[in-house]
Simulated scan of single mutants.
Amino acid sequence: MDIITDLTLVGALAIAWTAAGLVADGLQGARSAAQLRRRAGWLSALVIIGSAVFVAVPATAWVRPGESNAPAAVLLAAIPALVVLTIGVRRLGQVRRGAGAFATAPHAPLPPGLRAAAAHPLILVPMQVTGLAALLGVPIAARLVEVPASDVAGYAITAVGVAVVAIGVRAAVRHSRLSLLALAPIGRSRPRIPVSSR
């Protein structure tokens, strides 16, 4: 299989998952429930496109004769993509259904609990890590990096590890802050029990 086909497949994978990571990052910034529902729909579509490209890579390598670097290039991205498909998609569906509950009032402000759910790390982190890993596959598909190449692989794994930790910490801090905002009205609305004087 030629280098153009490899680059096309891996490039499409990188574009789809990087776009998914960017949309997931802005999910909690929606101004209304209707906007959150639209963004969740776009994110679901990007996940479907990215998953279809994952299926297309081995299928194309099997159908077309010749050596292909595409399967090796997408292997690193396959692990976080599995987390997206097993956990992230379910949580994204919950957010989309929660936003859909406000369909009769599309301009209603976004409830803090729904905003916190949209910022959950299990939605954001796997998608951004998949996009990052897919981007690292582009030089492999372009045959700029040979696999295995111990030095380059070591640097790449270190860079991905640092990025994963940074993405995870950022997502966890943001989710915690939004969760506290969701619980704040509950704390303020506690009924006061009058003290009767004798």
Rank of each mutant, 00 (worst) to 15 (best):
P71N: 03
L27K: 07
I4V: 14
V55H: 06
M1V: 15
V53S: 08
I157E: 11
I15G: 05
A101I: 09
I48Y: 06
A171Y: 02
A133K: 02
G137T: 11
L13S: 14
F102S: 12
V162R: 07
P148R: 05
A133Q: 07
G187N: 05
V138R: 10
A70M: 03
L9E: 14
A101V: 08
I167W: 09
T86F: 09
L178H: 00
D25N: 12
R97E: 13
R115H: 09
A108T: 11
G29S: 14
A73T: 11
G21M: 00
T8G: 05
P65F: 01
A163N: 12
R90A: 14
Q28A: 15
G113M: 01
G100C: 02
V160E: 06
A159G: 15
R96M: 07
Q28T: 10
T18A: 09
L124W: 02
A40V: 02
P191I: 13
A52D: 14
V160K: 04
R188K: 13
I167M: 15
M127T: 10
I79D: 04
A153C: 00
A40C: 04
T158K: 14
V145G: 02
V160R: 07
V53P: 07
G66S: 06
D151W: 13
G187P: 04
V125P: 01
A166N: 03
L22G: 11
P185Q: 05
A134S: 14
A134E: 08
P106Q: 00
A70Y: 01
L136V: 03
V84P: 02
G11F: 05
V23I: 03
V53F: 07
V57N: 05
G41A: 10
L22E: 14
A171N: 03
G187A: 11
I79V: 12
G11M: 07
Q128M: 06
R192D: 09
V129I: 14
R37Y: 07
T86R: 10
A159K: 07
G98E: 00
P80M: 01
A52Y: 10
D2Q: 12
I193T: 11
T86N: 04
P106N: 01
L82W: 09
Y155R: 13
A52E: 15
D6K: 04
G113S: 07
R170Q: 12
V84I: 14
P126D: 12
D2L: 07
S179W: 06
A56I: 00
A133E: 06
L82T: 12
I186F: 09
A30K: 09
S196N: 04
D6L: 06
F102W: 14
P126C: 08
P71M: 03
L36G: 01
T158Q: 14
A72C: 02
V160W: 13
P109G: 12
T18D: 13
I48M: 09
I186W: 09
I15K: 11
G41Q: 05
I193Y: 05
L180N: 13
I3P: 04
F102C: 08
P111L: 10
A159W: 09
I123H: 03
G66R: 09
G187Y: 06
R177M: 11
P80I: 00
A108P: 08
T130F: 04
A163D: 13
L36Y: 02
G21C: 00
V47M: 09
A20L: 04
S196W: 08
A52V: 13
A171S: 06
I123V: 15
P112R: 03
R97W: 01
V162T: 07
V89R: 08
G50R: 02
A19I: 01
S68T: 14
W42G: 07
E67Q: 15
Q94E: 13
P194L: 12
